[in-house]
Design a protein around this nucleic acid. Structure first.
Lengths: 360, 360
DNA sequence: CTGTTAGCGCCTTCAC
DNA sequence: GTGAAGGCGCTAACAG
């Protein structure tokens, strides 16, 4: 005889389905219908109440695993943080996105399964996602490991990419995928426009450590360049590593030295910049240099010099990702959303103390 | 005939258990044994490899839901953020804890299910947790709603409370529960000692908006009071709301006015304090007032005046919570941990620019 | 509107 | 070391 009921149960065995049925004097199927509460299953008010009474009396809650097996739906959304250190960083960016995801997920009565592409647990993630632990996935971040690739393509789950949109190269899939990001190009424009309005004509655009081919990096640069052209300003693209040299040129008063820096990613540079690099060369912000960043999280807001920044609506991006997925799933995954719906959310500029009219 | 196999499947039906068995020329049971890889199921190396080959050929991944149903274990840890706005706040406290939880969960090959006690989704949470969606729960935060209460007591899951330890009043449970928190009392001491060392003898201890009976609040106050007594310093307990009056007294140079504030919770006050309250009364930190906070997250670090703060190891607290649970579960929930194991992690003081010798 | 019936896909016990 | 059989708890389809 297989399966012990319980291992010499200390707990008063959980009520199940059939217990309720028996006690309410109905069939198991009826209990099921009451529990799922589907429109098409018409149940007399009387029976309904009787069943419900027993349900609460017995503290009956259907086992989610069984239901999942039956229905093939988990009610969960998997959130995959592709950056291994997404949390180690305590990164306000991820926090913002996650915040939006969480709050919206609950609106849609969905739970949230959190994964990071952190190595130690990669296989757990793989098993769970490929094993059908979630109905859909939101992939956040800009790291594109083979694991992420595999999970996201092979699980055959609807996916929303947040922040980095995959290139066309991505394996063709039999389910649609979506993207949500801010309007990076407009962000690039906004930053430059603000600076040129202040009279800056030599601007350094500084990149962080992110792979240069990430979609958002390219888009921001494109926006910045286009705007600079219109304003006949001079843009200098600087790698993160080369930043100090540029600072040196500014300190030396080189004629071609920029009067403003636009960090199109990586607000977390500010601490080092304000407390280390700049003081070392006797430079002060915004007197000698105007600074603009991207994201406008607390890193810019609370930096030694509160810093002007292009804000992207992180929370709303997260919310949108969930909304897209929830609606898609609700539509029975049938609606023809097209294979590449990308939603762009507007950016705005938050002007703080780090930018001032050029004085050279 | 019930159950359509697939709804006119566009997808090349997922491989299952029996497909692998057939193709590998073994019985389903053998496949199962290979997949679970239990010590006691001895399988010849040869069969093993053959099976595994077919597994990867067919991209077979067992359905997690079915496995759960079978084994009664999900491999998931539920993280319940009891503060409804835990994420809305973008609170670095929660982020730190979560960071620790996530990274450790992966070490133990467990997934993480995230819930907030947010109203709209409360029922989803309830269903899932009571329905067996997780093997254990970590309850983070200080809000004790009936929902939290119910879930945590009725689900009959092992629970770790982070940050707020429930009173004895909590419904008796048939499974143990644990607690992790920092050494709040030592934190209270540390803050006061630092101030008295600087010569402060009149100190206001300021409480935030958290219910006053939260364990950590009481513990911190106890530590603070004990230390103040030893140093014959004068402690004044101030409610958050009454803070402005105290500031006024400081500004007026009242003889009994404190020379230092110790915010035992709520670092997020600092913005308002430094940029609004204090300037309004012409006060400056640390000249007129020394400030100490609790938690030492970026809120203190990046405040207008970098603020001295009692650091609690948030990340490590999260990690510890997971470790406790994982070990408990691994021990077959059998080991006699006692019903109330509480782990205390040490605190430390991070001295910044907001504290200086008293000058009155 | 309610009950009957037949599995979902896997794991586990037990015989071989 | 491997296979055969039964059932986990629930829901879907159909009959009444």
């Amino acid at each position: 005889m297989p399966h012990k009921k319980t291992d010499s149960a200390p707990l008063p065995r959980r009520a199940r389905h059939s217990d309720v049925a028996k006690r309410a004097g109905v069939s198991p199927a009826t209990v099921s219908k009451v529990m799922t509460g589907r429109e098409s299953d018409r149940i007399s008010e009387e029976t309904r109440e009787r069943v419900l009474a027993v349900v609460s009396e017995l503290n009956y809650v259907p086992r989610s695993a069984v239901r999942e097996m039956q229905t093939g739906r988990t009610g969960r959304i998997g959130v995959l943080l592709t950056h291994p250190a997404a949390f180690g960083n305590m990164d306000p960016y991820h926090l913002g996105i996650l915040s939006g995801i969480l709050s919206k997920a609950f609106d849609y009565r969905r739970n949230t399964l959190l994964y990071t592409a952190l190595e130690p647990g990669a296989d757990t993630l793989r098993q769970e996602l490929l094993g059908g632990g979630a109905d859909a996935v939101i992939a956040v971040g800009n790291v594109w490991t083979p694991l992420v690739e595999e999970v996201v393509t092979r699980a055959n789950l609807p996916v929303v990419y947040v922040s980095v949109l995959p290139g066309e190269a991505t394996t063709p899939r039999s389910v649609p995928y979506f993207g949500v990001d801010c309007d990076n190009e407009a962000g690039g424009r906004l930053g430059i426009t603000h600076l040129t309005d202040l009279g800056h004509r030599r601007i350094a655009v500084i990149r962080g450590r992110v792979a240069s081919n990430a979609s958002f990096v390219q888009e921001r640069i494109a926006g910045a360049m286009a705007t600079a052209d219109e304003a006949t300003a001079n843009l200098e693209l600087v790698e993160y590593k080369a930043m100090e040299e540029v600072i040196k040129r500014v300190a030396d008063g080189a004629p071609d030295a920029p009067s403003a820096f636009f960090f199109i990613e990586g607000e977390n540079i500010l601490g080092e910049l304000y407390d280390d690099f700049l003081p070392r060369y006797g430079l002060s912000v915004p007197r000698d240099l105007s600074i603009v960043t991207f994201n406008s999280t607390m890193m810019s807001e609370y930096a030694s010099v509160p810093t002007t920044s292009v804000r992207q609506p992180l929370q709303e991006i997260g919310e949108t990702a969930v909304r897209i997925l929830a609606e898609f799933l609700a539509a029975g995954a049938s609606a023809d959303h097209g294979r590449r719906t990308v939603v762009r959310l507007p950016v705005s500029l938050e002007i703080r103390a780090s930018t001032a009219p050029v004085n050279r």
